[in-house]
């Protein structure tokens, strides 16, 4: 049990490892181009690991064991560092995995049906003044209708300054709302409420503006045509991601609740990422194209082009295809890999 000599032999190694950990803390890539450093570090680390595993046998005092635990922990987190952001991997994820994952997700379908269903319904009710008098006024409120009308009173004409500033505002404001929809997903109701609220209010505004007796309608549609496609899709997608996250807490599919939550977060991520990208694109369109005095023809072309783009991404890239299936089936990035079996047996 004379462990003094033993500890003395080991201690220099521990201290050296400790010093190396200290010096790495402030360095971003501590092991870049330093093979000898890596091998020295890992040798010391393995030695400390061995000491730790032999601690019981050596009968090291508890405080020394505690010290070794922390030392090994620190060295471990230096040696196995987080993988850096690999661009090609993210490109593959966004171009291959994400559309497939989004296309097959039932939550996306539900969110789209809820959003565009309520939107259309609300727009039609609000539009047919004769059958449903006062609907738009009750939904939007007289003040907001007035604000809408004054907003689109004058023909669109703004300068470059306004374009840039407004796109900044749209990025911050709209994308934040989308991300909030995702973040509040585990509580389910906030996501769904935000979705339904947006659908009804937007629908009512569109319907009201489409009435033949509202003069500002022309300018309004001049404004919304270009970015509407991106923005409406983004709203629906962000709520879908929140829904997917929340569903995971209830429909566990035989997994433990925690595992199911984790798996569904993995499935929700491509949806919210796509939604953020769409919010950004919508913001720039809304900032630059929508308020410009360009002819309506051009704006309609932008809308058609963006619809085509969305179709390509979500349907052409997303439609299940045996080749793509084979390519991504076992990829660890694919959140739908071998649906649940892998996780259930773990």
């Amino acid at each position: 049990m004379r462990i003094a000599e033993l500890l003395e032999k080991r201690r220099q190694g521990w201290l050296e490892l400790e010093r190396m950990c200290d010096s790495f803390r402030s360095v971003k890539y501590p092991f870049a181009n330093q093979g000898s450093l890596v091998s020295r570090f890992s040798a010391l680390y393995r030695a400390a690991c061995t000491d730790l595993s032999m601690a019981e046998q050596y009968q090291l005092p508890p405080a020394t064991v505690e010290y070794l635990h922390r030392l090994v922990g620190r060295a471990h987190s230096q040696l196995y560092r987080s993988r850096q952001f690999a661009t090609h991997r993210w490109f593959h994820y966004m171009s291959r995995v994400a559309p497939q994952s989004i296309f097959r997700d039932p939550c996306v379908k539900v969110a789209f049906i809820v959003f565009f269903g309520l939107f259309t319904l609300s727009a039609m009710i609000s539009w047919s003044e004769v059958r449903f008098p006062g609907f738009a006024e009750r939904i939007l409120g007289a003040d907001q209708i007035k604000a809408l009308e004054t907003n689109f009173d004058k023909p669109l004409e703004k300068n470059f300054n306004d374009y840039v500033m407004m796109s900044g505002f749209y990025i911050k404001h709209n994308t934040s709302i989308g991300l909030q929809c995702f973040a509040l997903g585990p509580l389910i109701l906030p996501s769904l409420c935000a979705l339904a609220y947006n659908a009804v209010v937007l629908g009512a505004s569109f319907g009201y503006m489409a009435r033949s007796d509202v003069e500002q309608g022309d300018v309004f549609f001049q404004f919304v045509t270009a970015h509407g496609v991106f923005e409406l899709t983004a709203i629906a997608l962000s709520a879908a991601s929140g829904l997917r996250l929340g569903i995971g807490l209830f429909a566990t599919g035989g997994l433990r609740r925690v595992d199911s939550f984790r798996l569904n977060a993995e499935r929700a991520l491509p949806i919210i990422l796509a939604s953020v990208v769409l919010f950004f694109m919508a913001a720039f369109t809304e900032g630059f194209v929508s308020p410009s005095p360009l002819p309506y023809f051009f704006k309609a072309c932008v809308a058609i082009l963006s619809s085509g783009l969305l179709m390509y991404y979500f349907v052409v890239l997303g439609y299940p295809h045996p080749d793509i299936d084979r390519e991504i089936a076992n990829s660890e990035d694919n959140p739908w890999r071998s649906v649940g079996v892998d996780h259930a047996t773990r």
């Binding site: 470059f160 300054n161 306004d162 374009y163 840039v164 500033m165 796109s167 900044g168 505002f169 990025i171 911050k172 994308t175 934040s176």
Partner: peptide, 14 residues
């Protein structure tokens, strides 16, 4: 242009 300034501030805060 001042619009650019505000754009950058908004983007940074986001």
């Amino acid at each position: 242009p001042s619009g650019m300034i505000f754009f950058l501030i908004l983007l940074a805060s986001f």
